[in-house]
Write a protein that binds this DNA or RNA. Structure first.
Length: 833
DNA sequence: ATAGGGTTAG
């Protein structure tokens, strides 16, 4: 049943009889102009079209006295651009002896309305009333429709009442119909009902053009019962037409009553009324918007089965929607059909379709199926999409191979395009193809491959774009290849690409990495000429690198220069400098910066505070560090775990183990979870304070608090226990570490050796020395522990119980020999070996 | 459109 109705629709659709309501009359009086007036019209049109801005010109002055409303009307309809028309209209308004009438107003209103220029149209309506312009009921209707068609419903109603009130017009039934038509564009049922009543009270008849807008209002507002009532009235009067049906059809589509819409089409068929193209398109759009794409597609297919070609834009609606819902296969079928029908397809749609594919398999399928139907451009777009997918999946080699194949090179990739296409012609790459692959290579760190491909690309004659230059320069700068960056920058400028902020910052970053202060400052000055901002992170990098290279004062000077050059550094850059100062024991310098920042309105954050707390602790000014933490709490700068850890460490290293424990518990109370560092700090501190049992207790706590001890924590404990002479417990944990495959550093072994020698357990001391050497580690001569080790070996050599064993060990191990030759030199003993 | 910095343990 349904399909019969639909094919009937298809049949009538082809006739495409356009529904045209007779109500919209022309704005002008059809009075023919005299030939002399024709010249005036042409002159005016020429002047305003050529130079619309200059209205005080002598030619115009001579034309002004000849103005008449008829001339103005004719001139207005002669402009293509609404702005020109409006300027002329405005000029005419100001000419002495000339006054607009309703026909010139309406001509202007019509232009503004079709250009959808609401603001000037609103002004125009106000002017009509203010200038007390008389008008016929028909002219009023025309103006009301102009307002209504751009949604100025309120203005239309106001105008209607004002002209009536001021006696400028006596509206008739036609005027009311126009007003209702304007109202029908909103869903204001009350307003429509009120005007209908008003109209009836005046004794005007309700005709077809009264009821139709009423039907529209009820449908827009979703009042189906009232709409049905109006529909029946229209039907009873025999006024059913395509417009009435289309209002209902769109209503059904909008509210999801698709079946009712189909039934209505069937009924239309019975009345011999034809569905027009515009309604059909609107229905499809509505159905798609309401996510009833399948129904819409069914409807659409029925139309096409009957052999008619629907408007291209409908294909686009479907393809876009199907791409959105990832129904790529359906979308692609429609696309192919368009191609087969020879419809010219917009590149944007092809791109959209391609970008909705996310699997190269689907694309290769698509490529197999319709390579023949694709033009060169589409083939390239499709291959570019495959390149895109390869790159985003991280299979850059595949992308690279495919591009080489597109360039006509021989490749041995597992997806050879030529074999997929059974040796047909392969797509030709465009600039985008190169950009996709080069960017992909850069992201994978294959800088040289990217550079070679770039050179190939340029050699073959492709033009690189700005982003490509920028990305290559960025890649080179990150690999510290500054000279090549400059070379590319030069090429870039030759190709007339101005360096951007990104370009400059890439190079700035490289200079900062290299600690080239002079170069960095010189570049900053050049950047300022371009209006480019340096990325502050690069400045911070320079400060850090200078500090690590013992050039702390240079770092501070650089920050000053930045500020002088108008690029004031931020709290992070200053923090790096403060930290640098602290590491060379210039706490006062750091404190100075810290104070300056606060007074200059910068707000030091947690990290900045941490750096200063660290500095104070290192300078043994722990009480002041503690004050600073208290200050943070008062200021509302929430201390981090690191803040607490720093203070705890400060107390541990300055005979304040109880204070350290106190702050540890304060940290827990303030809901800052202690971390491995907190525990390790305390374990070490407790051992230094000769409280190894408390240290052991803390280690147990760690395990229970999902804060597993790491290598550093264990070593702190083992070493600490050794220092307390508790070698047995130290050994237990030392073997724990071995079980966990944690390698011990030399200082742990030396801690044992030293403790065992103090206990006169030379056998164990020798054993630990053996283990250390077997593990391949040995302290550097600059290490603090080096002399301890040397003395220990000396003791082991002296004692008859260990002497032969240690000699053997020395013979087997060259690093021990070196240690001993030192003993010989410094201690005045004979070399033993 | 391309990028994102500073602090804590043996």
């Amino acid at each position: 049943m349904k399909s019969r109705a639909l094919s009937a629709t298809a049949r009538i659709y082809s006739c495409s009889a356009r529904f045209c309501r007779p109500i919209f009359t022309k704005p002008q009086n059809n009075v023919i102009l005299a030939p002399t007036n024709n010249n005036v019209v042409n002159d005016l049109i020429n002047i305003f079209t050529k130079n619309p801005i200059c209205t005080n010109n002598s030619e115009l002055d001579s034309l002004a006295p000849l103005l008449s409303t008829k001339i103005v009307e004719t001139v207005l309809t002669g402009f293509k651009n609404w702005k020109t028309a409006y300027m002329f209209f405005d000029w005419a308004s100001n000419q002495y002896g000339y006054k607009h009438n309703i026909y010139t107003y309406n001509a202007m209103a019509s232009i503004l309305s079709s250009a959808r220029q609401n603001a000037p149209l609103r002004d125009l309506a106000t002017n009509v009333v203010e200038s007390r312009c008389f008008m016929s009921p028909g002219a009023l209707g025309f103006l009301i429709r102009c307002l209504g068609s751009v949604g100025l419903v309120e203005e239309a109603n106001l105008l209607f009442d004002q002209v009536k009130e001021k006696g400028l017009c006596v509206p008739n039934g036609y005027s009311y119909n126009c007003l209702l038509d304007a109202i029908s564009r909103s869903s204001s049922i009350d307003l429509a009902d009120m005007r209908l009543k008003e109209m009836r009270d005046y004794g005007f008849d309700c005709g077809k053009y009264t009821l139709t807008p009423l039907l529209q209002v009820y449908c827009t507002a979703g009042e189906f019962d009232k709409a049905l009532d109006v529909y029946k009235q229209i039907q009873d009067q025999g006024w059913l037409d395509a417009h009435v049906f289309s209002i209902l059809l769109l209503y059904f589509c909008k509210w999801g009553e698709v079946d009712k819409a189909f039934k209505l089409i069937e009924r239309m068929d019975g009345h011999g009324i034809r569905l027009n193209e515009k309604t059909f398109a609107t229905m499809i759009n509505l159905l798609v918007r309401e996510s009833r794409t399948d129904k819409a597609l069914q409807f659409f297919n029925e139309i096409r089965k009957s052999g008619f070609t629907p408007n291209v834009s409908l294909y686009y609606v479907f393809i876009e929607e199907l791409c959105k819902t990832k129904e790529v296969v359906k979308a692609f079928h429609l696309y192919s059909e368009m191609k087969e029908l020879g419809i010219q397809i917009d590149v944007g749609i092809t791109r959209k379709l391609l970008s909705s594919f996310s699997e190269e398999g689907d694309l290769i399928q698509m490529l197999r199926e319709s390579w023949e139907h694709m033009d060169e451009e589409v083939r390239t777009l499709l291959c570019n999409r495959i390149l895109d997918i390869f790159v985003s999946k991280g299979t850059i080699d595949k992308a690279y191979d495919l591009l080489l194949e597109m360039m006509g090179r021989e490749v041995t990739s597992d997806i050879k395009l030529r074999s997929v296409l059974s040796n047909k012609e392969v797509a030709v790459p465009n600039t985008t193809s190169f950009i996709i692959v080069i960017d992909g290579l850069l992201k994978c760190g294959k800088l040289d491959v990217a550079l070679n491909l770039f050179q190939d690309m340029v050699r073959i004659g492709y033009k690189p774009n700005l982003v490509l230059y920028n990305n290559l320069i960025f890649g080179l700068c990150n690999s510290n290849r500054l000279e090549e960056s400059y070379e590319l920058l030069r090429e870039m400028k030759e190709s007339r690409f101005e360096p951007t902020q990104f370009t400059h910052n890439s190079i700035f970053g490289c200079l900062c990495q290299r600690r080239d202060v002079m170069g960095a400052i010189a570049l900053l000055r050049e950047m300022r000429v371009f209006g480019h901002e340096p990325w502050i992170k690069n400045s911070t990098l320079l400060v850090k690198n200078l500090c690590n290279n013992r050039q702390v004062m240079e770092a501070c000077k650089f920050l000053d220069t930045m500020a002088q050059e108008g690029f004031p550094p931020d709290i992070i850059a200053y923090s790096a400098a403060m930290d640098g100062l602290i590491r060379i024991n210039k706490l006062d310098g750091a404190l100075e910066i810290f104070q300056e920042l606060s007074t200059r309105g910068f707000c030091p954050d947690v990290v900045a505070h941490n750096i200063i707390i660290n500095g104070l602790c290192r300078a043994k000014r722990v009480a002041e560090a503690q004050n600073l933490l208290n200050e943070m709490l008062m200021k509302g700068v929430v201390p981090s775990v690191a803040t607490y850890n720093l203070l705890i460490d400060g107390w541990c290293k300055n005979d304040g183990i109880d204070q350290a424990m106190l702050w540890f518990s304060r940290m827990c109370e303030s809901e800052r979870e202690p971390n491995v560092i907190s525990y390790t700090t305390l374990i070490s501190g407790l051992c230094t304070a000769r409280r190894p049992d408390d240290a052991l207790m803390l280690l147990n706590q760690m395990g229970g608090r999902k804060c597993a001890p790491n290598r550093i924590a264990y070593q702190a404990l083992v070493h600490g226990l050794c220092k307390c002479g508790r070698t047995d417990e130290a050994l237990v944990h030392f073997y724990h570490m071995k079980e966990k495959k944690m390698k011990s550093d030399t200082y742990v072994y030396i801690g044992f050796i030293s403790a065992f020698i103090t206990n006169s357990n030379l056998a164990m001391a020798l054993e630990m020395l053996k283990q250390m050497v077997d593990g391949g580690s040995f302290p550097d001569p600059a290490d603090n522990n080096y002399p301890i080790l040397r003395d220990a070996i000396y003791k082991l050599l002296e004692d008859s119980r260990t002497s032969s064993c240690i000699r053997k060990l020395i013979e087997e191990n060259s690093s021990l020999q070196i240690t001993l030759s030192d003993v010989g030199r410094e201690g005045g003993f004979e070399p033993i070996v």
